[in-house]
């Protein structure tokens, strides 16, 4: 069985620090009005950005579970 430092620890670190950068980015583009939510298409873009973050998080989680238990 692979060790914790090779399976879930990198995952937690990746989405901990990565999440920090991602949500800081979301906050800043909201503050600068780079992503101006008064426009309908930008509401769609906000969903796309959040989708991307959780899409990679779920893929990595599935791959780790497959490696550990399949």
């Amino acid at each position: 069985m692979p060790s914790f430092s090779h399976s879930w620890l990198p995952f937690i670190y990746l989405y901990g620090f990565g999440g920090l950068f991602f949500f800081a980015g979301m906050y800043i583009i909201h503050k600068t009005k780079g992503l101006d939510l008064r426009l309908k298409r930008n509401k769609w873009w906000r969903k796309v950005l959040y989708f991307g973050f959780f899409y990679f998080l779920i893929i990595h989680a599935i791959l780790i579970i497959a490696a550990l238990y399949w």
Partner: peptide
């Protein structure tokens, strides 16, 4: 092994800065 894919799967974190900055 499969961890060679790591560098292709960690580019999303800076996308908000890139796309709207």
């Amino acid at each position: 092994g499969v961890s060679s894919t790591m560098t292709y799967m960690n580019d999303w974190f800076f996308m908000p800065f890139f796309l709207f900055g």
